[in-house]
Design a protein around this nucleic acid. Structure first.
Lengths: 228, 228
DNA sequence: CGAATAGTGTCTTTAAGACACTATTGA
DNA sequence: TCAATAGTGTCTTAAAGACACTATTCG
């Protein structure tokens, strides 16, 4: 049977928290179209590769994540598919966008690609002209991320394996761009069955009373949700 | 630049309410693979066609919806993309699934296709072996539909232009497969700013006190949501 | 009349938000 | 000591759910 041939790519919206800012992974394009322009990382899906596998592969290539046990600390989900006939001037392309949340673990971001990858503050990225329809994909990814924090435990994915309640609150504050009452937040998280489990350890570095350390609990969904 | 060629299709999960049941539109496949098997309606995306346009075209072909002003009464949104390399034995295919909610307006369902289309109760469809990965797509579509009713006004999309609070409650009950207290539901809907607007008209047909008729209000999101 | 459905009022419980207060550290 | 952060308690308000009650129709 004849069918119109399409190129299928995956593009990644990878969020992390760095220097007290929500950041997104971008690359500088080396070739036309949009040469020299900032873009989301991504690439072609291989002939026998699943879409999620292609996304995981691109993520590993660009961040180094996934080569070790670090894959455990990354959340990857399908965001949406973008297929406007004019989105790529070279050919008819359909891009399946994936959304990733990562704790900032290893610093090296320069991937196996020759392209220079960097963590760009989301506030900057939103006012930057990105290649293709990547500006729209970023907006959609940010909105999805914000919504997901409400009813899932995925905020912990932005934290290291052990974290304090203040760390977790900081994730919500940076992603939602709001301030949250520390006392009410504390109570709400502890009241949420299975959200966090105490390790028994405490932090010691900062000024102020040492905080208890927690790990992510069994729950993946929050009932009731933590509302924006 | 060389790239692996893919076939790109759209598949539709179209829900409606018929005979007091949540139903999904299915077709009987005429050709291999899965000849004679039930499947979701869908087809190839044309070379210069947007993905959403392809979904709208397939929907019109299968249901007749969209030819008149009826397009107003249908909600169409992207559900997700399915691209397992083995999902279609003929070729490498990526399918972009769309979710549609429709009021049961015109009865004729037999589309312009030769394939026989029918409204199948979702409870039946879930225990039927559907072609390709359409069983998974249906499950995902049902879960998305259930979630959407919580925080959007889309339940009204299942109703005719004018509807009673009981009609609306019935949508929630059938989609969520629960029973809802009519009195609390009534209060909650009326308290939700912009959800419904009274027309001033009343129903007269049934036994019991005549009910007020409403149209959908300006709101698209519900604050607070109506929880399952 | 009684059955059926529409619609209102009221009480209890749960959760959110404001915010006073105590606890424990470093400088 | 004070500044800073962690953590608890308590009050008020909003919303969910249970359910008694009234309203209006048909048979």
């Amino acid at each position: 049977m004849a069918f119109p041939p399409f190129a299928v790519t995956v593009d990644l919206v990878v969020f992390t928290i760095r220097d007290d800012q929500l950041c997104v992974l971008t690359i500088e394009r080396g070739e036309a179209p949009f040469a020299g322009c900032q873009a989301l990382p991504g690439g072609f899906v291989l002939p026998d590769e699943d879409l999620a596998a292609a996304a995981a592969r691109e993520l590993a290539e660009e961040t180094g994540v996934g080569k070790d046990a670090e894959i455990e600390r990354v959340h990857l989900e399908q965001l949406g598919t973008y297929g406007d006939p004019t989105r790529d001037p070279r050919m008819r392309t359909v891009s399946v966008a994936y959304l990733a949340f990562a704790a900032q673990l290893s610093e090296p971001v320069a991937g196996t690609d020759a392209t220079a990858a960097q963590w760009m503050p989301v506030a900057t990225a939103l006012t930057t002209s990105l290649a293709f329809d990547h500006g729209q994909i970023l907006v959609d990814g940010l909105e999805r991320a914000r919504a997901k924090l409400e009813y899932t435990t995925l905020a912990a994915t932005f934290c290291r394996d052990e974290f304090t309640i203040a760390d977790l609150r900081h994730v919500y504050e940076l992603v939602w761009d709001v301030t949250i009452d520390p006392r009410n937040f504390h109570r709400k998280v502890l009241a949420s069955e299975g959200f966090v489990e105490p390790t028994g350890e405490h932090t010691s570095q900062a000024r102020g009373r040492p905080a208890q350390l927690f790990t992510l609990g069994e729950a993946t969904q929050l009932h009731p949700p933590i509302r924006r």
